[in-house]
Design a protein around this nucleic acid. Structure first.
Lengths: 343, 343
DNA sequence: GGGTGTTATGTAAACCTTTACATAGATCGT
DNA sequence: ACGATCTATGTAAAGGTTTACATAACACCC
């Protein structure tokens, strides 16, 4: 029963007493084969335990059934949930998911390009927000691709993600509703499209409330904890303090809370803080972080569905699918402290 | 330069004015080809931008250059760091890493078995602690495999992980050194080998200190936050309270701290708590969790190295590689409270 | 100078599948 | 009843690679 070498289509054909072509047809286009024959083939498959050799199939078809997922950092708390969505959707369509991380190393990017060139992946999901492959000359050979988590700015590939503008808007609106007027934005960053959009949402909210943007309390940042801590330091140096910090992501918010804690302030009594992403840790910070949730599994699902569509249709359907962000209220926001309302 | 169809070995051969066999040899066994020829071939490769078609290669060789990694849950905070180690090591040897998650669904397991049978992966890394493929009959066709994170109990495959016994021992020893005598063990679980070992370390430590094990404060658990919370409830019901909780993992410890917090107790003033794993969240709990660190990236690296060795040698080298766990002291442990020292 | 090695290269088969084309048998319309 | 059409199946080529075997060139030794 369990030979050392796996059964081939020929073994099945021999047992079913048909040709290998018929076996192949019985599997892939069953309507083209007589009922009686199909039955014999299915029995033979059951007997041999035959599984199509994916290598041979891919070789013949000129494309594989693997999707390459390239992320800058597998450990990113946002990553795994999106991946689950991607993986489920892919597998239910007979595709496998392959994972690579670039660690922001361009050399790594080239390796993946080679990988794609050698036909090992039929499609590409990009978390990096940038085509990680040096010269655009290569672009010609890129398989169908979909950006996720971060829009890809140097190549017109479709994107699936959360509506950053709307999400940011929800955060500012909450702070404004609580009575805040001086709201800092931490994590301004021109190169990251998602962050730019969040800032746009921030500005829209401030404008809508008739407050407008005070550039002295818009701080640069790269989304790391450290950048949040640094921003707090800068503000205390400049002595232009807000009553609330709207942060471009949860990591930054954690950094801000650490910075404020280090200076002896209490969140939310002295300052309110919001994040963005709702990473798992956001529940465990103290206080638990009020933030904007990304529907990560859903993003993964949609992104993969779009990619698979591209793979069969050829032409790009939508260029951008934006999902609805949800406000998650926890304990890091309250009304501004007395000290601030007086100003 | 960038044709629509990728260059094949024949294109290279034509340009280099040699046969395809020579090209293949120039790539894989360069010492068997004359210097002058090798030069010509390399130039031709550079001109064409040739990359070996991995499908054809795998088909011919009867094995792929992919390693399948099967985890119960990609989102597990322990997972990503081990994966980084696995991935780096694999890639530096020309292998790619493929990720699957079973979500503890046996159906899923079967899909992966099919996947392996169809030659799409040369080796298997198992996070699940169990061969996820129904009947052991199949075992015959399993490719070289290595267990990681959790020893595989139903198949004699090599294992790479942390020394759970020693790690647990470090945790008890710390608690004992702080003066604790009544130390609960939370997360007893017969089916999970790693947890059993941690309990063994716990018992060894208690015995060495002449305290011994009090079964009334050894509680079952499955490593979830909820199981930790529940354990606290049980102890308060039974009214047999320890002064410290040694938890089988960080999640459990978080649950314990939540449970204690809910009853109005302060950690570490009223009770000390230790975890195991040092997941990223452990820094952000309040108080920050004292725990045992698993060298995750290193585990991944060693596991993959072992697997690749198996792949080339054939025979299993070591059956178990245990790495050193490190004690990470944070703020969840202190001397027992007055109330307890008096007992 | 002819047998013996050695070295470098070429020829062709094999890996397993899918599918265009060919074939043969059945069905149908008149 | 006969050509036309349709349906089910088979034959064989193709996809790109690796490698056993064959060949050819060359050096070497007695």
């Amino acid at each position: 029963m369990s030979n050392s070498t796996p059964a081939t289509i020929e073994d099945v054909a021999r047992i079913a007493e048909v040709s290998i072509a018929t076996v192949s047809r019985a599997i892939h286009t069953p309507e083209k084969v007589a009922n009686s024959t199909r039955l014999k083939v299915n029995q033979a498959i059951a007997i041999t335990g035959y599984t199509t050799n994916a290598m041979a199939r891919s070789l013949r078809l000129g494309r594989s059934n693997m999707i390459l997922v390239v992320a800058p950092d597998i450990g990113d708390p946002n990553f795994s949930n999106i991946l689950v969505g991607l993986e489920n959707e892919a597998r239910s369509h007979g595709y496998g998911v392959l994972i690579g991380h670039t660690q922001n190393d361009p050399q790594r990017g080239l390796e993946y390009l080679k990988f794609l060139n050698s036909n090992q992946a039929a499609g590409l999901i990009l978390f990096t927000g940038i085509l990680p492959f040096g010269h655009q000359a290569m672009t010609a050979r890129l398989p169908p691709s979909v950006g996720v988590f971060e829009p890809v700015f140097n190549g017109g590939i479709p994107y699936v993600g959360v509506d950053d503008i709307e999400g940011a808007r929800k955060a500012v609106d909450l702070l404004i509703a609580e009575g805040h007027r001086k709201i800092a934005f931490v994590g301004d960053c021109r190169t990251r499209l998602a962050y730019s959009r969040r800032r746009m949402g921030y500005e829209a909210g401030m404008d809508a409330a008739g407050i407008g943007t005070d550039l002295r309390i818009v701080l640069e940042g790269d989304g790391t904890i450290e950048s949040g801590r640094l921003a707090v330091e800068q503000l205390f140096m400049r002595d232009t303090l807000p009553s609330a910090f709207m942060c471009v992501n949860d990591q930054t918010a954690i950094g801000v809370m650490i910075g404020l804690g280090a200076r002896g302030y209490d969140v939310p009594r002295d300052f309110s803080v919001t994040g963005f992403d709702d990473v798992p840790q956001a529940v465990f910070t103290s206080p638990a972080l009020t933030t904007i949730r990304q529907p990560r599994t859903l993003i993964g699902k949609h992104a993969m569905a779009l990619l698979l569509e591209l793979l069969s249709d050829g032409r790009p359907a939508e260029t951008e699918i934006l999902l609805r962000p949800d406000l998650v209220v926890r304990n890091s926001v309250s009304a501004p402290s007395r000290a601030w309302t007086k100003r």
